[in-house]
Simulated assay, not measured.
Amino acid sequence: MGYYLIKAVITAILVVAISEVAKRSSLVGGILASVPITSVLAMVWLYVDTGDVGKVSALATSVAWLVLPSLVLFVLLPWLLHRGVPFPLGLVMAIAATALAYGGMVLVLARFGIRL
């Protein structure tokens, strides 16, 4: 249980630190947030937990393919906000569109024989 707590605390500290930096500089916050910290942490935790480089490789491959549909959120959310959509609604809309983009990407990849 202590190990999971350590993982959660380290991950939470990074997320909070990025949000605090972003209050002062959206550029620096954006740079830190765009670095795949979550993905790197997930791969590290997966390797530490399993020692299985095959699982780490599969996760990295899935992340690589799913970066493109994840961009929908980062393009759509500011577009909606600049048009006056309230933040909570805009966020829900952007997340929903991103979920659809993920589904579409998985379907397209499956047509080419790529299974994530």
Results as ranks from 00 to 15, higher is better:
Met1Ile: 13
Met1Cys: 05
Gly2Arg: 14
Tyr3Gln: 09
Tyr3Lys: 12
Tyr4Thr: 10
Tyr4Trp: 15
Leu5Gly: 09
Leu5Lys: 07
Leu5Glu: 03
Ile6Pro: 03
Ile6Ser: 11
Ile6Ala: 13
Lys7Ile: 04
Lys7His: 10
Ala8Thr: 09
Val9Met: 10
Ile10Phe: 14
Ile10Arg: 13
Ile10Met: 15
Ile10Pro: 11
Thr11Gln: 12
Thr11Glu: 12
Thr11Ile: 09
Ala12Thr: 15
Ile13Asn: 13
Leu14Ala: 11
Leu14Glu: 13
Leu14Ile: 14
Leu14Trp: 15
Leu14Asn: 13
Val16Pro: 11
Ile18Pro: 10
Ile18Asp: 07
Ser19Gln: 11
Glu20Asp: 05
Glu20Phe: 10
Glu20Thr: 13
Val21Trp: 08
Ala22Gly: 07
Ala22Glu: 03
Lys23Ile: 08
Lys23Pro: 05
Arg24Thr: 09
Ser25Thr: 06
Ser25Ile: 07
Ser26Ala: 14
Leu27Ile: 10
Leu27Asn: 13
Val28Ser: 06
Gly29Val: 05
Gly29Ser: 00
Gly30Trp: 02
Ile31Val: 10
Ile31Ser: 06
Leu32Glu: 02
Val35Gly: 09
Pro36Leu: 08
Pro36Gln: 12
Pro36Tyr: 03
Leu41Phe: 11
Met43Arg: 04
Trp45Glu: 07
Trp45Gln: 11
Trp45Lys: 04
Leu46His: 14
Val48Leu: 14
Val48Phe: 15
Val48Ala: 15
Val48Arg: 15
Asp49Trp: 13
Thr50Val: 14
Thr50Pro: 14
Thr50Lys: 14
Thr50Gly: 10
Gly51Arg: 14
Asp52Tyr: 07
Asp52Thr: 12
Asp52Ala: 15
Gly54Thr: 07
Lys55Glu: 12
Lys55Ile: 12
Val56His: 09
Ser57Gly: 13
Leu59His: 06
Ala60Ser: 15
Ala60Ile: 04
Thr61Asn: 05
Thr61Tyr: 05
Trp65Tyr: 10
Trp65Val: 06
Leu66Tyr: 08
Leu66Gln: 11
Val67Glu: 04
Ser70Cys: 05
Ser70Phe: 02
Leu71Phe: 09
Val72Gly: 01
Val72Trp: 00
Val72Arg: 00
Phe74Asp: 03
Phe74Leu: 04
Phe74Asn: 03
Val75Arg: 01
Leu76Val: 05
Leu76Ser: 04
Leu76Trp: 02
Pro78Leu: 01
Leu80Glu: 07
Gly84Cys: 12
Pro86Tyr: 10
Pro86Ser: 07
Pro86Phe: 07
Phe87Cys: 04
Phe87Ala: 06
Phe87Leu: 08
Phe87Arg: 08
Phe87His: 07
Pro88Met: 10
Pro88Gly: 08
Pro88Lys: 11
Leu89Val: 07
Gly90Arg: 03
Leu91Cys: 13
Met93Gly: 01
Met93Ser: 02
Ala94Gln: 00
Ile95Val: 11
Ile95Pro: 07
Ile95Ser: 14
Ile95Cys: 08
Ala97Thr: 01
Ala97Arg: 02
Ala99Thr: 04
Leu100Asn: 01
Leu100Glu: 00
Leu100Phe: 03
Ala101Arg: 03
Ala101His: 03
Tyr102Ile: 00
Gly104Cys: 02
Leu107Cys: 01
Val108His: 13
Leu109Glu: 02
Leu109Phe: 02
Leu109Trp: 01
Arg111Val: 00
Phe112Asn: 02
Gly113Lys: 04
Ile114Ala: 08
Ile114Trp: 01
